[in-house]
């Protein structure tokens, strides 16, 4: 990697100097912190039932009240963050890795391979995401893995296209020509010289993609087609909250606000990251 430690430090300083970026950093930091240390933060077992104290409003014992089975909503919200990141991170990084590889091959390889890959990307993009997700869930059944797979499959084309465009631009630049004339192999050119120049752009895309993924996981779980109960996903909270909306508002609030906060945080962070890493990108999207 060409990015040295100080360069990474510069990027973080740059993001923190922008007020929206700082807000994004704080929100994302909080969510990640809560997800990592969820086990120690939760006051109650997120899946532990207590029928006696069901459907309570907020109190000092239960900050966000309890659900129809007497489970503590606050604990479920915290644990839900863990589930959200468990889906979002592998899905986004998987899609980024595959998209990067395919995109670089498309940009650097022969024309027919480029056309074939572009057709593949266009085809995947031609399915409306949620419809595609529903079709896959209908066929193989709901689970955490299905959600990860759907998200990966649908976002590979985005990364692939950007990686391809970047590769095409870099392909004719002087340092690559020099490298080629010295007889460097294709793997060396792609891996050592092009990769570091493309990864930054894709990382920005990934940061902005995470909220979409979190929303999709929550959405599928809300429909009862994502993670299985009693796993405390934000979407599952919304599902319970929807059926109990006339009894208690706290489940919908408890499931909805973290999704909006997470979306805001990652979007702010992504936008600010983009401005710091590559201001030119601002116009492309």
């Amino acid at each position: 990697m060409a990015k040295s430690r100080s360069e990474l430090g510069q990027i973080i300083t740059g993001v923190a100097r922008d007020p929206l970026g700082l807000m994004g950093l704080i929100i994302v930091g909080t969510i990640v912190f809560c997800a990592i240390f969820a086990y120690w933060i939760v006051p109650f077992d997120p899946v532990g039932m207590n029928i006696k104290s069901r459907l309570q409003g907020p109190s000092w014992t239960h900050l966000l009240g309890t659900d129809q089975l007497g489970r503590d909503t606050f604990s479920r919200v915290i644990a839900g963050g863990q589930v959200a990141l468990q889906v979002a991170l592998p899905a986004v990084f998987g899609a980024m890795a595959i998209g990067l590889t395919l995109g670089m091959i498309a940009g650097y390889g022969p024309k027919w391979l480029d056309n074939l890959l572009m057709l593949l990307f266009d085809t995947i993009r031609s399915f409306p995401t949620v419809m595609f997700a529903l079709a896959v869930v209908a066929l193989v059944g709901p689970s955490l893995q299905t959600v990860v797979f759907v998200v990966m499959a649908t976002s590979i084309p985005t990364y692939g296209r950007v990686a391809r465009t970047q590769t095409l631009t870099l392909r004719n630049s002087e340092f690559i020509l020099a490298e080629r004339s010295m007889g460097a192999s294709m793997t060396r050119i792609l891996g050592v010289h092009m990769l570091p120049n493309i990864v930054g752009v894709l990382a920005v895309l990934a940061a902005m993609d995470i909220p979409t993924v979190i929303a999709l996981e929550a959405g599928l779980s809300f429909l009862g087609l994502g993670v299985k109960p009693p796993t405390p996903s934000w979407g599952a909270l919304l599902k319970d909250g929807y059926s109990l909306i006339r009894q208690t508002p706290w489940l919908v609030v408890g499931g909805g606000l973290p999704i909006i906060l997470a979306t805001l945080g990652f979007t702010f962070l992504g936008e600010s990251l983009r401005d710091v890493v590559d201001p030119k990108l601002r116009k492309q999207r």
Binding site: P211, A215, A218, G219, F222, L238, G241, Y242, I245, V252, V253, G256, I259, I260, T263, L264, T267
Partner: peptide, 12 residues
């Protein structure tokens, strides 16, 4: 940043 189904639930 607001996902449609969350907005839908909250506005409901």
């Amino acid at each position: 940043a607001a996902p449609a189904f969350v907005v839908a639930l909250l506005s409901l």
